[in-house]
Design a protein around this nucleic acid. Structure first.
Lengths: 348, 348
DNA sequence: GTAACAGACTGATAAAGGTCAGTATGATTT
DNA sequence: AAATCATACTGACCTTTATCAGTCTGTTAC
């Protein structure tokens, strides 16, 4: 039974669609806004998503943009619902990678046809990729399905701000899938200084590195805000990783991406001024905030310093500079990026 | 037909063994010292290695130590030949991971029996691992065989010191396997400063990262000395990687190891003094030199600085300090580490 | 309602290390 | 054989940034 997620803020429309799809024997999940939609998609990924374009706070484009960045949700067929058949909207959506477009009002028949077609097409796509078997293009649909099965029906644990999820030197017992919230992983040197190696957001996996190498953690993971985390036991994950080409390809890509990012950081840490590094960190944090539907950046100055690899005071001073230069605004500790472009262009 | 590599410096013994094994229908390869033995093992990996313990320059323990560090040669059954049945030698060899021990003189029968037994045992091991299928313990023998097949009979190209193997922004066309020599990969920032992300030695693969992600190189690779490099075309590597669990597991481990190292570097780059970073780099370089059978470190000060992420002058000054403190010796640019322990313990 | 605390921020100071300019020496080219 | 170049190394100077000490403000605990 295929599961379909509907993201739509007006109750009537949503209810109407639910009825149509339920009658046709689909399992239906609903969300009344973009943020909840993303959360539901990441917590229990559907086979297809129907999403309204115009919504308050986070619109449909934002939802698509965010979901297409996480491996678990990246390849779910995505169909936009739109009130008027605006050509510009249509293009924008399709360019973002939407699979189809339905204009309201629609008749039930039309809706069902489009949904069925997209589901079928996605299956065909998986079958074709199955044959091809070249990495990179390989079988993302099938890999995605395996990822989805991996995270389905797991024990979910909640962590509160500042709770440790795992600690350095512990042995890994499970893979973690972050359903909501924010987690930092960091290393500590002999003198107690800390460097944040990663900030994870909803939809990310964490702890796979030690699990794969079967060694103790070399880093600690701590919740930066309240989190919901699905636990995937080692004994479920490792055999699947070893036996599934699709899953291992997904993780190979994840690892390669990590290396890429770390090498970039190394270069920057070696030769960029603090000004530059703070600017880069701001851009990264801003991106991550927007990807969680937040307009401004909320981070402890201590954590910021550990990301940049410097002293807290230096970060604060640099932020003050940026503020007077009009690149950012700071309100009660919350940072809002004003001039992305200038931040990006900071030299040295 | 199984291939056996004999590493033994006295001609008579070597010739004797070659004859015995050839008559029993083994393909035999021979090396008259440790260095050549390593090179041959890495260039065309055998199914089993017979290695003398006492040899000039690089003894049998050294050979085993080095070969067990590279994925291609790590799981080849390794048998020591020793003149006297010294108990201490026996223990040392077995602790290093040798599979068996033969004391000279031996009779042909004994030799053949041991060789056959080890070959059989290794096949059984592969079969057992095949069933188990858990990552980490999985099927290293089979993965190794696939690695060996991957590098067998490839076009080999030679690069001279300072030749570029690939450059930033080029599209990857093949995987490189370094048969001999030393290669650095580095990134360059907008202001022309360079950070060395990796130094590769004989037995290492390079360029897999961009290949896996199917993106242009983000780094350049340049020969640090004359090199022999086997080329594995993309079209051979990628499908195999996508389809072989064993191979992809090998590369997953390689990638995870890389991340581990880079995160360590990030922490150090962020908070360690140049003194500390230079000391760490020295230890790393020393390790790599010893793994190639060289007693001292040969590296351009510019390259050293790019490894440490600092100015050349600062590196030189720090080296001068270490010299006066008796931690290293410098002779005509060549660095010899004297006091590993003190270097390791340098604070901050 | 007050005490204790955590977090953001500021000022003064010192040290680390980058930059520039230059010397010495051995290798390579002409 | 002279000229050019590459590389290792030194000295003087100045910028960046770490450190320490302290203020201010909002939050939490009792």
């Amino acid at each position: 039974m295929k599961k379909i997620l509907i993201i739509e803020d007006t109750y009537e429309v949503r209810d109407n669609i639910v009825e149509i799809l339920s009658l046709s024997n689909y399992e239906v999940d609903e969300a009344e806004n973009g943020i909840i939609g993303i959360e539901k998609a990441q917590t229990s990924p559907p086979d297809l998503i129907l999403c309204d374009v115009m919504m308050p706070d986070l619109d449909g484009f934002g939802v698509l943009h965010i979901l297409s960045k996480k491996p678990v949700t990246a390849n779910i067929p995505f169909i936009f619902l739109t009130a008027k058949s605006e050509k510009a909207d249509f293009r924008k959506g399709m360019n973002l990678g939407a699979d189809d477009y339905i204009t309201k009002p629609f008749d039930p028949h039309e809706l069902l046809e489009v949904v069925e077609m997209r589901l079928k097409k996605n299956e065909r796509k998986a079958a074709v990729q199955e044959k091809k078997g070249s990495l990179g293009l390989i079988n993302e649909s099938k890999g995605r399905r395996e990822l989805q099965e991996l995270i389905a029906n797991r024990e979910v644990r909640t962590f509160r701000k500042r709770d440790a999820i795992y600690k350095e030197n512990e042995l890994p017992r499970q893979l973690y899938y972050l359903q909501s919230g924010k987690v930092k992983t960091f290393r500590t040197n002999d003198f107690g200084k800390t460097y944040i190696t990663h900030i994870y957001n909803a939809g990310d996996f964490l702890g796979y590195q030690a699990l794969i190498k079967n060694t103790p953690y070399h880093e600690s993971a701590v919740a930066m805000e309240n989190c919901r985390v699905a636990l995937i036991p080692k004994k479920d994950f490792l055999p699947l990783l070893a036996n599934s080409r699709h899953l291992s390809n997904q993780f190979i890509k994840l690892l390669a991406q990590n290396i890429e990012e770390h090498e970039e950081q190394l270069l920057s840490l070696a030769y960029s001024s603090i000004r530059k590094r703070v600017a880069q960190a701001l851009l990264k944090l801003n991106e991550q905030s927007r990807n969680s539907g937040q307009a401004n950046i909320s981070i402890l100055r201590d954590d910021f310093a550990s990301m940049v690899g410097t002293a807290k005071e230096s970060v604060i001073r640099t932020l003050a500079e940026f503020k007077t230069e009009g690149l950012i605004e700071v309100d009660n500790g919350l940072i809002t990026v004003i001039d992305q472009d200038k931040l990006y262009k900071i030299p040295c």
